[in-house]
Amino acid sequence: MLLIECPHCGPRDETEFHYGGQAGIAYPADEVSDEEWAAYVFVRDNPKGWFRERWFHAHGCRTWFAVERHTVTHEIRTS
């Protein structure tokens, strides 16, 4: 069970949250190729190490926020 620091509510159990995957995915420009669109829709980083990701405090304040978490140790650091 991860202990995740919600910016509004403070540290809460993982079960209060939904996972949102990689953070910082910008909506693509107006004109993109099929390949660029496919990458935007389907391809995300999948690193073994530090990963910036989104969480949603679904059973709390319903804030979306980003944390940095290590995908081997599961350690979360404030960024």
């Binding site: 069970m1 939904h18 996972y19 995957g21 999948n46 073994k48 990963f51 081997v72 599961h74």
Partner: peptide
């Protein structure tokens, strides 16, 4: 488990 991981373990919940 919901999150990305290479840790070969998951949550007890």
């Amino acid at each position: 488990d919901a999150y990305n991981s290479y840790g070969q373990r998951g949550g007890v919940h």
